[in-house]
């Protein structure tokens, strides 16, 4: 069974790492997080329900690992400054419409958001999880997902309205 999800897991690595970066904002920490999440996923492959989204399942594992880590280390602070992280801003191929400047602004703005808003933005707007799926990953009611998401997006829309 582990072998069956193994190759899919490898395919998920880029997205797992991106989610990990959103959570912990440190590339080295993110790599550790992804690795331990994969280990956990492989060991527990039998508890994944075939037919459900594998990505959402691993996202949840990864996030739980992160929360465990926070509990253990009791450091809400980051080990590296986010400005030392050039790897998260980019262009999406919708380039002609959206200027690089605007996207950089959006990225900066997302970085200032609380973690609970950042993670829900990523899961829904970037990873295309349904609200219900995101709620399962985050372990919160669907209403919480919606209110966090709406708040974050409203603020973003206001911030960039002039652009």
């Amino acid at each position: 069974m582990p072998a069956a999800i193994g190759q899919e897991l490898v395919g998920l690595l880029p997205r797992l790492r991106r989610f990990a970066l959103v959570l912990c904002r440190s590339p080295s920490l993110a790599d550790d997080l992804v690795q331990s999440a994969c280990e956990r996923a492989l060991a527990g492959a039998d508890s994944w329900t075939p037919g459900t989204r594998l990505d959402a399942w691993v996202f949840r594992i990864l996030r739980n690992q992160w929360i465990d880590h926070l509990r253990r280390s009791r450091t809400e602070g980051m080990s590296e400054d986010i400005t030392e992280r050039p790897d998260i801003v980019g262009d999406a191929g919708e380039g002609p419409i959206l200027s690089k400047l605007l996207l950089a602004e959006v990225q900066q703005f997302i970085d200032t958001m609380p973690a609970e808003q950042r993670e829900v933005l990523l899961l829904v707007c970037v990873e295309d999880l349904a609200y219900r799926e995101a709620a399962e990953v985050l372990g919160v009611p669907i209403g919480t997902v919606m209110s966090r998401l709406a708040r974050a997006r409203k603020r973003l829309a206001e911030m960039t309205a002039a652009a």
């Binding site: 897991l9 490898v10 690595l13 880029p14 997205r15 790492r17 991106r18 590339p27 790599d31 992804v34 690795q35 994969c38 790897d87 998260i88 801003v89 980019g90 262009d91 999406a92 191929g93 919708e94 959206l98 605007l102 996207l103 959006v106 990225q107 997302i110 933005l121 990523l122 829904v124 707007c125 970037v126 997006r153 409203k154 973003l156 829309a157 960039t160």
Partner: peptide, 25 residues
């Protein structure tokens, strides 16, 4: 806002998995 967020987290940035991580997994 959805489009903006999506574009800000471009696919290209996501594919940037360090070889060491890939090898470890």
């Amino acid at each position: 806002s959805r489009r903006l967020i999506r574009s800000a987290y471009a696919r290209s940035t996501a594919s940037d998995v360090p070889p060491a991580l890939r090898a470890a997994v």
